[in-house]
Design a protein around this nucleic acid. Structure first.
Lengths: 195, 195, 195, 195
DNA sequence: CATGAATGAGAATTCATTCAT
DNA sequence: TATGAATGAATTCTCATTCAT
């Protein structure tokens, strides 16, 4: 049946993507030869090139997949009355996504940089965050957040999430609910206007 | 004269290191062949191998150089009475160092990761920061800082510096004295115990 | 209906042949992958292999087709009383065929060489010209043509036709009736016995 | 001694060129892998790439070498009083060059076509023949040669030389002095104005 | 008859490193 | 110290061909 054909084909493509994600994070993209990717995906080298134009195309597709996942999280409704609750809601969502997808995190933070990912593709990504910059814009106008360059404000908070995730990934020490809440609060203190 | 010999020799070694730093940041280490390094350093390939065991040795020496520079900054006396002043003093010192040595920053943050730098060498680096962990330890005990995992506290602050430097490096937008003070304050708000 | 089946099938086979002829002339046989041939013929790769044993078989079939076309021209009756008129008649027939089938010309002259076309197949081709060698044999015996190695005599004339066709193909400059007559005369002067 | 260094290096380069010439003519450029070229040249693959940018560069250098050889022949003084003697002088010089350098002949006539040789490089070659077109120009003006498109006149004669050389190359039958003279005469009859 | 996913041998090219001078 | 020609293992990618549907 033709449907099975397509199903199997898709499965192979998915396997290749998953294997590359894993190997890229473990060894780096340069240190992952196509031969190894083929072997560990249980496909022939030719099959990889049947599905992807070249090595870069694989890495780019992984990048797009993760970005999409990430976007889904950012789009979701946060149930919070105050701005503080909304801020912490996002903080914890992203933290949780990264903690439960450590490979995605490592790929996104360590691997997905130019020239591995072409600059144009990375530029596109900005559009995915536009909506959240608004959150900060309004906060500044309301006098709720510190009056700083918006991007800096965003990065201050985001860099804290990354730091927290790294603690878990590197040290194999995770935080309990209370500690996460505590860390999110610290970020909130960094961005909110105090007094 | 033998002195000149040595002088020229040192000069060549320095040139090789400087060229590699530049190329590694611009293109990545993997994308920088020894042949290009030789060409752009105006030396023969053999000369590179005369001064360095292999490619990795060059990258490691650059890593050590920057780490030393960095340590010098951290060891310097900060003139501040309060803990807040000391914290901000370090914050701004590191920020200034990175801003005035952008290539070093990029090398340290983007290039100097395993497996490019061997894990053992990176582990060593922890010793350089031990003293500053103390600053945070005491702060927590005094009830001045938030009661969190010290490493997280340190990373929260450090990640903020990196975020601020990246803003400048990527967007070519730098901050004036007041804005830097403002950003350091935000970090301080993140780590200090409020109320 | 089965007839349509066969019709469509023949059509596909013809399309494949025509596409390969075009691509082989434009890019060379080696530089024409089966995948491109399939794409530009609007058929699947499998379909090509349904009609032809392999790549060589396609090229050989094109070769045979052109050779057949060519033979048809050589067999045709030339209305001429004198040997000169007959010679020029053939000369102009071949010239006209090549001019009106430039792709066939280029395939025959530039592509259809061993090892692209197997030597055995090329050897066969000699039979197609045997009859015309006779024309030259007799001419020599009659004292009408120069007394030279027959093959050389034939090739002297044929190479002139090729030279004339190339002029048109490369320079996009064609000859009018009078000029063609003139060129054929030149060839005739080359082969005929003068004085 | 450094001189020997260079000498050996040049020798290897020459060997690579000579081997490629031979293999290209025997098998075609596409059918000659770099691995075979390296093996039969008794050098490592890397050595080939040390001397040549890529496969094309080797073929182009061979082309230039032969063109240079060829130009040397065309530049040489021909001792002939009449135009006929000069024409035949050139005819026989080229014929002899090709007969004594059959590999060069085959490379030039069968291999050195686009896209193996880039069109720009082939275009350059026209300059090498400019001077000889003059010979034909004058002949036409003088009423000595047939009044035809000069390029055609040149090609008519040149194609005859090629035909004669091919006879020898393919059939392994060469012509004696008288026969060569005879063939050159046939070409002369083709181009000269009769009556 | 037609399809196109899958295959893997083989091709071109790169590049860290060696070593004789 | 300095040189750079030489090396060849390793890498990316191509492409003719097969075969299950």
């Amino acid at each position: 049946m033709s449907k099975n054909h397509i199903k199997n084909s898709l499965k192979k493509k998915q396997t290749i993507l998953a294997t590359m994600l894993e190997l890229a994070v473990k060894q780096g993209v340069h240190a992952t030869p196509m031969s190894q990717l083929a072997r560990e995906s249980n496909v022939a080298i030719g099959t990889i090139y049947h599905h992807f134009k070249n090595k870069e195309a694989i890495v780019c597709e992984i990048y797009r997949m993760i970005r999409q996942d990430f976007a889904t999280i950012l789009i979701q409704e946060i149930n919070g009355k105050t701005q503080e609750e909304i801020f912490k809601g996002y903080w914890k969502s992203i933290y949780q996504y990264y903690i439960s997808h450590p490979t995605a995190f490592q790929f996104y933070e360590y691997i997905a940089k130019p020239p591995v990912i072409p600059i144009e593709l990375m530029e596109e990504t900005k559009d995915y965050y536009r909506m959240h910059a608004d959150f900060f814009w309004k906060g500044i106008k309301n006098g709720l957040l510190k009056n700083m360059h918006v991007t800096l404000l965003v990065q201050l908070a985001y860099s804290n999430i990354v730091a927290a995730v790294e603690l878990k990934i590197k040290n194999e020490v995770s935080m309990n609910k209370e500690q996460i809440e505590h860390a999110a609060s610290a970020s909130w203190d960094a961005v909110r206007l105090i007094n």
